[in-house]
Computed example of a mutant assay.
Amino acid sequence: MELIKTLIWIVNLLSALSIIVLVLMQHGKGADMGAAFGGGSAGSLFGASGSANFLSRTTAIAAVVFFSTSLALVYLSGGGKNDLGVMGGKVEQVAPQIPGGKPSESASGPRSTIPE
């Protein structure tokens, strides 16, 4: 089981790094206007418009892989089995401590006013 978790962690980290690199490689919407007037991106590796389709599709695939591996890690770690979350299922109530002296009337509750 630990081998599977380790492999999923590796795929998760690689997909996260590839998303970062792919997003940084993409150009903004304003860069298309420069290519129309003979800008430098027209002679790029993917051509004038080919890089947008290739990089955006590859980014989408990497995002699907990232979210899938994240959900798989949550499932394999046993997420959602404990209903109380961080409380851990055991709650103890402790009586409040009164610092020194005898307890005041408000601490011990109201006294009866019926004469004995």
Rank of each mutant, 00 (worst) to 15 (best):
M1D: 09
K5M: 12
L7R: 11
I10T: 14
V11G: 07
N12V: 06
S15H: 02
S15K: 03
S15E: 04
A16F: 15
L17I: 11
S18P: 04
S18L: 15
V21N: 01
V23C: 06
Q26S: 10
G28A: 09
K29D: 07
D32P: 03
D32R: 09
M33W: 13
M33E: 10
G34M: 07
A35Y: 01
A36Y: 10
A36C: 07
G40Q: 05
S41P: 00
A42D: 04
A42R: 09
S44I: 02
A48T: 07
G50D: 05
G50N: 04
S51F: 09
S51Q: 14
A52Q: 08
A52P: 01
N53V: 13
N53E: 12
N53Y: 13
F54A: 02
S56P: 00
R57S: 14
A60N: 12
A62I: 01
V64P: 00
S68Y: 07
S70G: 09
S70Y: 06
V74N: 10
L76F: 08
G78K: 03
G79E: 02
K81W: 12
D83K: 09
V86P: 03
G88D: 00
K90I: 10
V91Q: 08
E92D: 13
A95T: 14
P96D: 11
P96F: 11
Q97H: 15
P99L: 15
P99I: 15
E105L: 13
E105M: 13
G109E: 08
G109V: 09
G109K: 07
P110L: 02
P110V: 04
R111M: 11
I114T: 14
